Simulated scan of single mutants.
Amino acid sequence: MTIKPLSDRVVIKMEEAEETTKSGIVLAGSAKEKPQVATVLAVGPGGLVDGKEVQMTVKVGDKVITSKYSGTEVKVDGEEVIIVRQSDILAVVE
């Protein structure tokens, strides 16, 4: 099954949380920070959103930073993805 986002929506997959710190300390599950970097899997067409014309600036394959706890989590073929508005994407990682 594939997801085709509508309007200004973007489908992203979050990167895995760090298991260890830079100094090598292994983190417990509750101590891991929720990741904010994700990979763009699909992009909607943009268009008219709330009376304003929206052009999509991200593309499939981009690494992006999103707002914490934004979007709607969906399970597709056993894989967790998140559908967010383009406005919830803060930056593109280069």
Rank of each mutant, 00 (worst) to 15 (best):
Y69C: 03
A31Q: 14
Q55C: 06
A17E: 12
E15C: 09
V58A: 05
I83T: 04
I82G: 04
M14H: 06
A91F: 03
S70N: 00
T72R: 12
V54R: 08
S87W: 03
E73A: 13
M14Y: 15
G61C: 04
V93Q: 09
E73V: 13
K13L: 06
E15H: 11
I89T: 01
V60P: 04
V40Q: 03
I65D: 00
G51I: 07
P35M: 05
G51D: 05
I89Y: 02
D8H: 08
K52M: 13
P5K: 01
V10P: 00
V60T: 15
M14V: 01
V54Y: 00
P5V: 03
G44E: 05
V26Q: 09
V49Q: 06
G61M: 00
I83G: 02
D88N: 13
V74K: 10
L6M: 08
A42Y: 04
V40F: 01
D77V: 09
K32W: 02
S30Q: 09
A17Q: 07
K52I: 11
K32P: 03
V60K: 15
R85E: 11
I12C: 01
G29A: 12
G78M: 08
M1S: 14
E94Y: 10
G44I: 03
I25E: 14
L41F: 02
Y69D: 12
E94H: 14
L48P: 03
G44K: 06
I25L: 12
E15M: 12
D50I: 08
Q86N: 02
E33T: 13
V92P: 03
T21H: 06
I82E: 01
I89Q: 04
K63Y: 06
G78N: 15
T39D: 10
D8M: 01
D88W: 06
S23I: 08
I3W: 07
T66H: 01
E80A: 15
Q86V: 05
E19M: 11
T72S: 10
Q36D: 10
L41V: 07
E79I: 14
V76I: 15
K59C: 03
V11R: 00
I25S: 10
V40Y: 01
P45K: 15
V26S: 07
A38I: 07
E79K: 14
A91M: 06
G78C: 08
Q36W: 06
K22H: 14
K52C: 09
I65C: 07
V58S: 03
Q55I: 10
V93T: 06
K13S: 07
S67G: 11
L6W: 06
S30K: 14
A28H: 11
K34G: 08
Q86M: 05
V37Q: 11
V84G: 05
K32N: 01
I83R: 01
E15T: 11
E80I: 14
E16T: 11
L6P: 05
K34Q: 13
T57V: 12
S7A: 12
P5A: 04
I12L: 02
K22Q: 13
V92C: 00
K4S: 14
E19A: 15
M14D: 08
E19F: 09
M14I: 04
V11P: 05
E79S: 14
V11K: 00
V26C: 05
V60D: 08
T72V: 13
V54C: 00
V37E: 12
V92W: 04
V26T: 13
V11Y: 01
E53T: 13
S7W: 09
G71Q: 02
D62Y: 05
R85L: 13
T20Q: 13
T20K: 14
